[in-house]
């Protein structure tokens, strides 16, 4: 991803900024210009608190070149406490530690680089809540 595209998405990547439809209450991450549930265009900003649970996961063994060094790594669909879902890596764990509905929290990490000389792209990954 090049710098202009990356920079545009900083509110979502860095701060998990989402939006809530004022008409039907559906939370969108990332924000949209029109609610897919009720067609409303009236939204309020919400921040995802960064806690959720694992709905399903996989362990990527054959990775795209950019992620080769990290393989095998866990990717999960996480349902955030606010009800919205997202896809992210789950790190700092063995894949055997994953479980259905395992509680996770989001941490700020490096996600990828196009190449050694290109910008470092940050965002959120999940870690298992251990307490």
């Amino acid at each position: 991803m090049k710098s202009p595209q990356y920079t545009r998405e900083i509110p979502q990547r860095y701060r998990l900024e989402a939006q809530k439809c004022k008409q039907c209450g559906k939370i969108h991450f990332p924000p949209r210009l029109i609610c897919d549930a009720c067609q409303s265009r009236d939204f309020e900003d919400v921040h995802l608190a960064g806690k959720g649970r694992v709905l399903t996961w996989t362990v990527i063994h054959v990775a795209p070149a950019k992620f080769d060094l990290e393989a095998p790594y866990v990717i999960a669909i996480v349902e955030m406490e606010e009800g919205v879902r997202l896809t992210c890596q789950v790190v700092d764990c063995n894949p055997e530690e994953l479980a259905l509905n395992a509680p996770v929290e989001m941490v700020f990490r490096r996600i990828q680089e196009d190449g050694q000389a290109d910008i470092i792209q940050y965002g959120h990954k999940a870690v298992l809540q251990r307490e």
């Binding site: 790190v91 941490v107 470092i120």
Partner: peptide, 16 residues
């Protein structure tokens, strides 16, 4: 550091 950690990510977590 993990492959996905650096001075920035460590600083963010400590500041949180």
């Amino acid at each position: 550091p993990g492959l996905d950690e650096d001075t920035i990510t460590i600083s963010v977590q400590a500041t949180r």
